[in-house]
Simulated assay, not measured.
Amino acid sequence: MKRVLIVDDAVTVRSYHRQVLEAAGFVADEAANGMEGLEKALSGRYDLFLIDVNMPRMDGYSLLTALRQAASLAGIPAIVITTESGPAQQARAIAAGANFMLTKPVTPEELTLYARMLGGADV
């Protein structure tokens, strides 16, 4: 089973993403901010990261940068899911290390499609 780490400060968003991805066959774990996400990423084994941008303690851009600097995590795909949209935000997310960016709210079909494409289709 493919494992995904969902990093978002909104408990309802984490719960929604977890339900969608678990229904699609992923094993999901959650973190409430970037710092907690980094700690879990460094101590676990994940196939995909879903990362919000605006969070306390460490924002999504800083988390992405830290993930890409860690040799063991640098190759794991990351999807930024945020309410912010536009070319500038997308460019910043990609520059920080995101593989793709989605704008909230995402549909279950959209989330499942991109999670399978980037995190592995064998779920």
Rank of each mutant, 00 (worst) to 15 (best):
K2P: 15
K2W: 05
K2H: 10
R3K: 13
V4K: 11
V4C: 13
I6T: 05
D8Y: 09
D8I: 12
D9M: 08
T12M: 15
V13R: 07
R14N: 09
R14T: 02
S15Q: 15
Y16G: 05
R18P: 09
L21I: 04
E22T: 14
G25E: 06
F26H: 04
A28E: 11
D29P: 12
D29G: 13
A31E: 01
A31M: 06
A31L: 03
A32D: 15
M35Q: 14
M35H: 10
M35P: 07
L38K: 02
E39R: 14
K40L: 14
L42N: 01
G44D: 12
G44R: 11
R45V: 00
D52R: 07
V53A: 03
M55A: 03
P56V: 04
R57L: 14
Y61G: 05
T65D: 15
L67Q: 02
A70W: 00
A74Q: 12
I76A: 10
A78L: 05
I79L: 12
I79A: 07
V80T: 06
V80Q: 01
V80L: 02
T82F: 09
T82N: 11
T83G: 15
S85N: 10
G86F: 08
Q89M: 03
R92P: 02
A93F: 01
I94Q: 07
I94H: 08
A96S: 11
F100Q: 02
T103P: 01
P105S: 12
P105A: 06
P105E: 13
P105V: 13
V106P: 05
V106L: 10
E109S: 12
L111N: 10
T112Q: 11
L113C: 09
D122Q: 13
V123F: 08
V123S: 08
